[in-house]
């Protein structure tokens, strides 16, 4: 009985796979050509984004104007997904004192820990400030040049990881531990949600927003986009660093 069922199962698997392959191939062959001017993607939505975003949102970078103004709700969801992903990794990998007692000591000492290295530390003394400044520049100029919260946050998170590897956990614990992680991430997400709720409320009721949009190419030109970029950058850099440290040690502290 079981053998017969297995044979039937295999045959059904092959048939299902063939049906799906045929469906995919038929769909792909029915798709329009890439770059065709009459494609359905070249509609009035993208045209409006490209022509109007520079004076409506004040952001010269059309992508920033799109993701933080026209589609800000989508970006809010993305930053929350990042936070939820970190929380899930916390739940799965966190090693507190109780679970640490159960492990044999050789498991704890098995991981290779890089000792303090003077060459790495000296060269990173020059590089890490430069990387931080570059990340802050990318975030703060996200609405004027290519960049924004996601890319700048990834750069700053990488700088945190470099710092951790060069100077050790005790050194970075002074300014970046689980408390600061929670406070920064929650404040950034709360600020994002509140600011965007205000804007949506004002827009839906046809009221006048108190947040000015200058649209003159200066750094404060785009109203809410700069603070939202900073909030997204804080969340992304925290997420990158927290994921790294969770997979490295199973917790913020040793």
């Amino acid at each position: 009985m079981n053998k017969k069922f297995n044979k039937l199962y295999n045959i059904l698997c092959v048939i299902f796979a063939l049906i799906f392959i045929a469906a995919m191939i038929i769909t792909v062959s029915a798709l329009p050509n890439i770059g065709d001017a009459t494609n359905p993607t070249n509609n009035e939505v993208s045209e409006k984004y490209l022509t109007d975003s520079s004076w409506e949102t004040g952001s010269l970078n059309a992508v920033s104007g799109m993701i933080l103004d026209y589609r800000a709700f989508d970006t809010l969801g993305e930053s929350h997904v990042l936070f939820v992903a970190t929380v899930a990794v916390f739940i799965l990998l966190r090693r507190d004192e109780d679970s640490r007692k159960d492990l044999p000591t050789r498991c704890l000492n098995q991981s290779y820990e890089q000792a303090y290295d003077p060459i790495l530390a000296k060269s990173l003394e020059f590089l890490i400030p430069a990387i931080f400044v570059f990340g802050i520049y990318v975030i703060a100029n996200g609405h004027l040049s290519p960049g924004g919260g996601f890319s700048g946050g990834a750069i700053i998170g990488a700088a945190f990881i470099l710092y951790l590897n060069a100077y050790g956990l005790e050194s970075i614990e002074r300014f970046c531990n689980s408390r600061t992680y929670l406070i920064c991430s929650c404040c950034a997400l709360l600020f994002y949600g509140l600011a965007k709720s205000y804007v949506f409320y004002v827009g839906a009721n046809h009221l006048h927003s108190i947040i000015p949009v200058l649209a003159d190419g200066s750094i404060l030109a785009s109203g809410l986009i700069l603070p939202l970029n900073i909030a997204v950058g804080v969340v992304v850099s925290n997420t990158v660093y927290a994921l790294y440290i969770m997979f490295r040690r199973g917790g913020f502290s040793r």
């Binding site: 290295d117 060459i119 790495l120 060269s123 020059f126 590089l127 430069a130």
Partner: peptide
């Protein structure tokens, strides 16, 4: 930057 980082990377 590359001249700084790549020898350090090799050293590590």
């Amino acid at each position: 930057c590359l001249y700084f980082t790549s020898p350090v990377c090799s050293h590590m």
